[in-house]
Nucleic acid binder design. Structure first.
Lengths: 200, 200, 200, 200
DNA sequence: CATGAATGAGTTTTCATTCAT
DNA sequence: CATGAATGAAAACTCATTCAT
């Protein structure tokens, strides 16, 4: 029975979690109220606070789980292929599939609490370092006057962030990331070329 | 006599304006309330609405005045030099001097009213086109498989936007833009190089 | 247990409702603020909006409940007697008992939202038609040059409206409608007489 | 020069007065703000309070002047004809020409201050008494069981008030009073008939 | 006398959080 | 554990009136 209770608890928590995720994804983390989430999830308003003591806890949980999932996918991708451009392409495809989520995250990141922001940025940083490693082993070079790999990685993620933020401005149907994917990959490849070519 | 009154009015308006600007810069356009601004400015809450009928009018005034000033500076820069990299460098210096403002703008742009957003994006677009023109005349090329100038411009402003958004993450003293200036300029120059070299 | 909660809720709602009703009756629907009602009812300002999402919802609830009650009474009266004058007399007595309410309603009707106004006027129209039917069957006549029944009904309700609006002007104690009841009934009867007499 | 000043003062006052009147007539006495009147009149907001210490003073002045004018017209009408029905018809025509004003007055009377209300009702009462006198001399009768003249007069003004209040409900073009004029006159005449016929 | 900037109490509504049931 | 009623501190905006110029 203790188990049953636990299961029930876990179930309720899951429902709230999934509902919140869907709503955040549709309407952003800021503009959805706890009351709305509870109503949509079919539980009492207070129940939400049993499982997530604070609104922020809920947001953090949703964001964190999504990023964990992303991390797993990325780890998988990296095992499959050591070709950086292919990897980057796959990553963009992944983001593009979850674009609604990542666009909200990119837009609203500055309004998260410092702790959450740091957490998210930390996760992001790990991915960046993984990309950096692959990049370096795929395109080995260390010429002084060439482009630094760190800059290339930063450009990749910077531009991805930019496209996500601007999704609304380019208010067309479909994925914005998908639309700019080739352009971004080309540029990255070009930049990488400026390093590689200088290797003896 | 009428002048004295006008001066007094202009003075009060200016106080509210400057107070609001300072607070917006520090804490963002969204999270500062009209009541706080009025209190900080030392006027009655209602007085604020004498000078700015709507909260949005105040925000818009602050944003607009700053962007107008920027436009003038940019026009000046363009007359001084036709060297794109120099121009871009100067532009980054300017933004870096007003970094608090542009960082808030970059972060909160998605939450502005559509009208304001369009206004700001329009202004931004003008600058981008000016940059594109200069770039094209400075580095003439039209090779099919090279990097497109449009992409280079987009990367320049995209990365600038990214650095501004991430200012808080790199929570060090001083200007974030200044710190990344050289890296950004180098990358841009490298990208431009990939176009130029292919010209016969 | 759930019942206790529900009872408590119903109790709070009732307190707000009754307090509002009393205050509306005394001071009109327009000039009483939600904050005043909450204070007088001894609940937090926000609590009022838990039970009545909008000020208008509260007003509408008060008005509607009173009019529904009226409708039931009128239906009852009509079953009891088919004598129009008796019926009209009873109706006036009913209005006179709830005079504070109907006086405010008459005075402030033009300032209600279109939806509420239509709702109230619609209810009123039903009663008028019921009266018209009874009148026609009680005093059957259709002479061309006699007074039209529609005019008689309109005069009845028109004068009632007038007395209610003028209640404050005749600022004496007690019911204004009661004071003019006999006079109004006499006139109506006289008017009806001008129709009836012309029947062959 | 003192004269010139006085003239100027009187002129300014007149402008404010006329502007206010027009606006009250169009939009009601309640919903027009002093700032709007001043703006529309082309004077400073404060100027309005030089001539009318209180918003209420302005409203009272406008209402009073209109009613004075009405009084003069009515006095004129009464000299022209001693036929009550003709007189009543002319009166309705007069009201119908100024319907916007009288409709606003009827609707908003309950929201005026007690002093103003009394003043207006007092004026109205004078007219009613004049009508009563004419009526009595035109249709001399004093039968006990007939309709009382006082009631007939009250019905006349009561119904007029009712039609004015309901002007918005019958939201058709043109004058509502004009539309109901004949019906009202007929009813009044019928009622008077019930007195007259009983005279030997 | 005319001006118009300044006032500040007042309005309805929202929402994360608490706690008795 | 689940409930959901209650809280109260926000928020932006209005407007008759005052008073120094």
């Amino acid at each position: 029975m203790a188990t049953k209770r636990k299961q029930q608890k876990a179930f309720t928590r899951r429902i709230i979690f999934e509902t919140a995720k869907e709503m955040f994804l549709q309407r952003g983390f800021i503009s959805v109220s706890t009351a709305e989430i509870a109503r949509e999830a079919g539980v009492a308003h207070g129940t939400l606070f049993v499982h997530f003591p604070t609104r922020e806890d809920l947001v953090l949980d949703v964001v964190d789980s999504e990023m964990e999932q992303a991390q797993r996918r990325i780890d998988g991708m990296m095992e499959e292929s050591a070709d950086f451009i292919k990897l980057a392409g796959k990553y963009l495809e992944f983001v593009s599939e979850h674009e609604a989520f990542y666009a909200q995250l990119a837009k609203e990141l500055p309004f998260f609490s410092p702790e959450m922001r740091d957490k998210i940025i930390f996760r992001q940083a790990i991915v960046q370092m993984q990309f950096l490693d692959i990049m370096k082993s795929d395109f080995p070079c260390d010429r002084k006057n060439g482009t630094r790999f760190e800059d290339v990685v930063r450009h990749f993620f910077g531009m991805l962030h930019y496209y996500l933020c601007m999704k609304d401005a380019y208010n067309q149907e479909g994925s914005t990331v998908a639309r700019f994917k080739d352009s971004l990959l080309n540029t990255i490849q070009t930049l990488l070329g400026t390093c590689k070519r200088d290797q003896p």
